[in-house]
Amino acid sequence: MSAPLVRFEGVTRRFGAEAAVDDVSLEIAEGEFFALLGPSGCGKTTLMRLLAGFEAPDAGRILLAGEDLAGVPPHRRPVHMMFQAYALFPHLSVARNVAFGLKAQGRARAEIDARVEEMLALVKLEGLGGRKPDQLSGGQKQRVALARALAPAPKLLLLDEPMAALDRKLREETQLELRTLQRQLGLTFLIVTHDQDEAMVTADRLAVMRTGRIVQVGPPAEVYERPIDRFVAGFLGEVNLFEGPDGCTGVRPERMALSRAEPKAAGRLPGKVAEAGYLGDRTVYVIEAAGRTLRAAQPSGGDAFRVGDAVWVSWPATAVMRLAE
């Protein structure tokens, strides 16, 4: 990993008595796609706004490429943001929206025009430069917002819930497109989202936040497969929890196997199928076993079970995640 582009050092931001961001330290590397993930109100948006300069920390400092950002107002920061509801200027055309940051930098007219063309091509909106924002679809607006934030070539692009306003199918396509775009440009992206799929699909690394603190940081697979506590495990996906004398453990539904005969796995319980939900690529079963309710996801094409069938639920030792409270 190269030198960190962004460094939060013990950053705290309070609103009244409450700390929206509580003693956060974090590093984001140059060229990285980083996601801040957490439920609403966890402080992820405030953390992003601190970086953009719309909030100032009450304690700690924020460094960008080694320089302290304290006292630098938003308009002097080489950081651009893609706003949640896009914040496209309704009185300006698409082209003038995209040109906005370039004009603020005082670039030459010809240079601006060329850059705007380039940006519109990048987000596949060639020919729509003359439209007003309210003549665009939701997906088009989102891409204009992206082009506008990218046009002045920021060192760091912030994306505040960029897909929140899109419908599910478009969101899934856009997530991958964004990933590809970031790889092509080699820019550092910081995305804020409450959608764990979005964070996992797009990011190189993600940080899970809760009540102003960062709970866990790591690559998506690592955080998903080795969550440190019940909150992270539950926030990133479904999990079957087991309370034992030596603490709490969890197993993901897709690591659960179902069989009619008793298996030889490390963990196993006899039970009964209480409910079955077919999802196309997999089927999700609810199993009543030893007085508890477990979930097991089985890929399609294997043995199908019906409600009321007697089954064994089993899991390998490697699937067991040790979880702190």
């Binding site: 953009a52 300069g53 719309f54 107002p73 938003p74 308009h75 002097r76 920061r77 950081v79 651009h80 943001m81 706003f83 949640q84 509801a85 914040a87 200027f89 309704p90 906005f100 940051g101 603020a104 930098q105 506008r148 934030a149 002045p152």
Partner: peptide, 14 residues
């Protein structure tokens, strides 16, 4: 929408 003004600041206007 206050975020429009913030967007303008974010893009380099005082």
């Amino acid at each position: 929408d206050r975020s429009l003004e913030e967007a303008a600041q974010d893009l380099g206007l005082s």
